[in-house]
Simulated assay, not measured.
Amino acid sequence: MTRTVQITFDCADPGRLAEFWADALGYRLDDPPAGFDSWDAALDAFGVPESERNNASAVHDPDGVGPRLYFQRVPEPKQAKNRLHLDVRAAPGHEGEQRMAALEAEAERLVARGASRLQRHEPSPPMGLGHIIMADPEGNEFCLD
């Protein structure tokens, strides 16, 4: 029996991180529940106070292929290197300088949206195609691969 996967991020600002990852992956923010024009209208109806409206957010692949990403507010900051990270496939089918140029362009785009560039790994044939290590706006490491 197969299962679907949701990836959950503990974070300080779920709304901001959800918007970053939606942009990075071409995902969409989850729609409000049926019968509501907006999340604010739904949260008003549910009696959620303003101070708790950024406790969670989620994004999904509009094509229904990739996993849903869920962002939940936690009180503690990130402490150490991730034990698990995402590889964002930003240059599939490319090799050599063409691949690295595509990765550099995506790194530049994401830095403009709040990411940090951490390290570039040059191609090292036959196995290493090259990649760039990045961090999202809250410091979660990911690779542009």
Rank of each mutant, 00 (worst) to 15 (best):
residue 68 R to H: 01
residue 108 E to A: 14
residue 60 H to W: 06
residue 70 Y to P: 00
residue 94 H to A: 06
residue 75 P to Q: 07
residue 95 E to M: 03
residue 44 D to W: 09
residue 27 Y to S: 01
residue 31 D to Q: 13
residue 75 P to I: 09
residue 114 G to C: 11
residue 47 G to T: 08
residue 80 A to S: 15
residue 136 D to W: 07
residue 7 I to G: 03
residue 135 A to R: 03
residue 43 L to N: 13
residue 72 Q to V: 14
residue 127 M to A: 15
residue 141 E to P: 05
residue 101 A to D: 08
residue 84 L to H: 06
residue 12 A to M: 13
residue 131 H to W: 09
residue 22 A to Q: 05
residue 8 T to P: 01
residue 59 V to R: 02
residue 12 A to H: 15
residue 38 S to E: 02
residue 105 A to H: 01
residue 31 D to P: 10
residue 118 L to S: 08
residue 50 E to C: 05
residue 27 Y to E: 01
residue 20 F to P: 05
residue 47 G to C: 09
residue 13 D to M: 00
residue 115 A to Y: 10
residue 63 D to M: 13
residue 83 R to D: 09
residue 59 V to G: 04
residue 28 R to D: 08
residue 99 R to T: 11
residue 29 L to S: 12
residue 54 N to A: 12
residue 101 A to Q: 06
residue 21 W to K: 08
residue 32 P to H: 02
residue 124 S to M: 08
residue 55 N to I: 06
residue 75 P to M: 07
residue 77 P to K: 10
residue 89 R to F: 14
residue 70 Y to R: 03
residue 62 P to L: 00
residue 143 C to D: 12
residue 24 A to L: 05
residue 7 I to Q: 06
residue 68 R to S: 04
residue 124 S to K: 08
residue 66 G to L: 03
residue 16 R to Y: 01
residue 89 R to I: 15
residue 117 R to L: 11
residue 141 E to R: 15
residue 28 R to E: 13
residue 108 E to T: 14
residue 99 R to Y: 12
residue 104 E to D: 15
residue 8 T to A: 12
residue 126 P to L: 10
residue 113 R to W: 07
residue 88 V to P: 04
residue 39 W to G: 10
residue 72 Q to P: 02
residue 99 R to Q: 11
residue 5 V to T: 14
residue 24 A to R: 03
residue 41 A to N: 07
residue 38 S to L: 01
residue 62 P to W: 00
residue 19 E to L: 08
residue 122 E to H: 12
residue 48 V to L: 14
residue 5 V to A: 09
residue 77 P to M: 11
residue 17 L to C: 09
residue 81 K to V: 08
residue 4 T to D: 02
residue 76 E to R: 04
residue 58 A to L: 00
residue 129 L to G: 08
residue 12 A to L: 15
residue 86 L to G: 00
residue 23 D to E: 13
residue 137 P to S: 06
residue 132 I to R: 06
residue 129 L to S: 09
residue 37 D to Y: 02
residue 106 E to L: 02
residue 18 A to D: 03
residue 25 L to T: 03
residue 110 L to W: 11
residue 11 C to G: 03
residue 117 R to H: 13
residue 31 D to Y: 04
residue 103 L to F: 05
residue 115 A to E: 08
residue 35 G to A: 09
residue 8 T to E: 14
residue 64 G to C: 14
residue 86 L to M: 07
residue 109 R to I: 13
residue 81 K to S: 12
